[in-house]
Design a protein around this nucleic acid. Structure first.
Lengths: 355, 355
DNA sequence: TTGAAAGCGCTAACAA
DNA sequence: TTGTTAGCGCTTTCAA
């Protein structure tokens, strides 16, 4: 076992066969080796690979062939050093535990991943916390990425203000109140307005919004959409109750109780966490949906997938968000002129809960 | 707007103020600049920073001070090139859509992220698909990482066999049938055996296992744990029905029907997706839990969090899994001898569904 | 069309 | 204790 065939995993296996030890194996073939073997200069090899600079078709083919046969791969890091690029983009997502539950970020990642691959880029992951963005800082200061995608924005966002002061190109997924920031988002305002309007048009005269933290820009936007619908549909000012900043289940329940007292006919939740809490309480209290009260959510998720009746909600495509964000970032890095604010679509999905 | 203060975001804002264009700003101070400014050699500066090699305390302080004042940060990529390191570890997770729903991987990431940060490493993310591991391949061949953590293993795992042939150190989260692979996992076998045993000891005489794909090592292990409990408790061979490879809801439902025909008293599900399907069908058919039939799951998740009655299940800590995997990988890279198979703990949580 | 040489920013022998 | 020098593996200017 001491002598391993080249190409097999380099590992020494212990007597008891229960531990292993890694031994580095040097196998690397460099551009210099290729040049030497072919009797040409490194420059020529480099040119053959990049396709830049004049080079004879014959030599070009010869080099390319040799490379293929000998499985030569240029060292991307060395290339990066020479070109002042890293071929990485940074993906910054929140690490807070109630957020890691959400499939949203993984779906975004999927989109980013796909686009980045097309540009021969990799993704460097940084998890940040509301008040600890040290990982983001180190990635930027260590210059390990060529640009950054921020997965979430807060109203007062340390990440954003840090990035603005750096010279690192970045885009955010979600919205920012800062006009200078390149932002990719769904059109939450329009979406929330539309869903609310539809509900009103169904004849509902008294409706309530129960929402999460106003620290999130998106919740501000949702609220605005809700209010706009109310204004547009010309319902009285007492037609819409709003309870924001319900960050815990008990706060949601408390808000819900108020809504019930006020005889709200429909409860709209800004997201599925809030909605779950609402559904649980209604269930416990034996209030039936949609007969006694209607429920809708401004965000759908698997958490609600299996609920009976199905919950009316707004649907978005996080993967598309990731793809557009990534494309935009690459365009921006390349010096192209890019849209500062891109708004993507949504679907209003009417289900049993508002029948 | 054409002239920006240094340190502000380099961006040209268009006339309509709706697009932006990025302009690179050169601000970098190198080790050479520091050396020159201080009238010492680059080596001296390098030594002052790394703390390696003999250097006078006086010069050392002088260098450090200058660095602090002038905000010099060594270029990690250049350092990496010189030391043949990347200061990145690769994190490979599946991109299949039914898998991105799971918070499991994000929780693992959290643990990895924490440990990696302590080693001044970053995480390079690759999403792979069951039969397309090209992203993994490019990351390895491009030598953009010093080691890799595989987030999931299949029975016949292309990623594993590829990595074994490369000289890239790697560990897997989950189990592999391949003894040579360094693997970090929860003790699923023991956990499943224990939960099953407990249920049997409650007096259940006829129980069924409904499970997902046998392509996943973990499902094989779970099945084994289930079978071991049956054997150990000396129930007859007809006491335990097993329906594996139920990859769709309809397959689960079909299996469930069989179980009901056979008068199973308790349904155990290998994971929460299966469990959700089971619960939905039981609910639809008006079969009450735990009165008419008992239900348990070998994996808990938020999908089941809000179900009434609460579902008895096994609980694991994915973050710990990530932390241990990452630590192990670093030890292995450092040439330390490491355990080939590490098994972490679990909790059996008995809830209403098996009352 | 090709090559020599300098340089990207850092580390590490070896000398002094 | 400090500096000189030669890399790490690639790109790119300039000259041939």
């Amino acid at each position: 076992m001491a002598q391993e065939k080249k190409g097999e995993q380099a590992g020494k296996i212990s007597a008891e066969n229960t531990t292993v030890q890694f031994q580095r194996e040097q196998n690397k073939i460099t551009i210099g080796d290729v040049a030497e073997a072919l009797g040409v200069s490194k420059t020529t090899v480099s040119r053959a690979i990049s396709g830049k600079g004049r080079i004879g078709e014959a030599t070009r083919q010869r080099v390319l062939e040799y490379i293929k046969e000998n499985h030569y791969r240029p060292n991307v890091v060395a290339k990066g050093l020479a070109k002042s690029k890293t071929y990485n983009i940074g993906w910054v997502m929140p690490g807070d535990s109630n957020v890691t539950e959400l499939p949203f970020f993984q779906r975004c990642m999927l989109g980013i991943s796909e686009v980045a691959a097309a540009y021969d880029y990799d993704i460097l992951l940084s998890m940040v916390f509301d008040h600890d963005i040290s990982k983001l800082k180190s990635v930027v200061k260590n210059r390990k990425v060529d640009g950054i995608i921020l997965g979430r924005t807060l109203v007062e966002d340390e990440s954003v203000s840090f990035l603005k002061k750096s010279d690192m190109p970045f885009v955010v997924i979600g919205s920012s109140n800062d006009e200078d920031v390149i932002q990719i988002d769904n059109d939450h305002m329009e979406a929330c307005k539309e869903l609310t309007s539809i509900i009103i048009m169904k004849g509902i005269k008294k409706l309530a919004l129960i929402g999460g933290s106003m620290e999130h820009v998106v919740n501000q936007t949702r609220r605005k959409g809700f209010e706009m619908a109310l204004a547009e549909q010309e319902l009285g000012s007492d037609a819409g109750m709003i309870y924001m900043d319900c960050e815990t289940d008990s706060m949601v329940e408390h808000a819900l109780e108020q809504c019930l007292c006020e005889k709200a006919e429909c409860i709209i939740c800004t997201d599925d966490r809030v909605c779950t809490a609402v559904l649980n309480k209604l269930n416990r209290d034996g209030i039936s949906i949609p007969e006694q009260i209607k429920v809708a959510s401004f965000y759908d998720s698997i958490m609600l997938d299996n609920y009976k009746p199905a919950i009316t909600s707004l649907c978005y495509d996080p993967k598309e968000l990731g793809m557009v964000a990534c494309t935009t970032l690459f365009d921006y890095i390349a010096g192209k002129r890019v849209q500062k604010k891109v708004l993507l679509g949504y679907d209003v999905v009417l289900r049993g809960s508002t029948k």
